[in-house]
């Protein structure tokens, strides 16, 4: 099926791949920040004995 923007099949596949890679990177970053927060928070709570 031809794209209304005139985008070729190869360009569409490449764009889809880029989008998935970007989404994966962002999800990984969010998970990392969450895990790091839990670890740092846990360490601080243990240190201060709250």
């Amino acid at each position: 099926m031809s794209d209304p923007k005139g985008e070729s099949e190869a360009a569409r596949k490449a764009r889809r791949g880029r989008n998935i890679a970007l989404a994966a990177g962002l999800v990984l970053f969010v998970i990392l920040v969450f895990v790091v927060t839990i670890i740092r928070l846990g360490g601080n709570v243990a240190t201060h004995g709250y």
Binding site: S8, A14, R18, A21, L22
Partner: peptide, 9 residues
């Protein structure tokens, strides 16, 4: 140019 793939980045 070929379209940029994620591997290019």
């Amino acid at each position: 140019a070929a379209p940029a793939r994620w591997q290019d980045y």
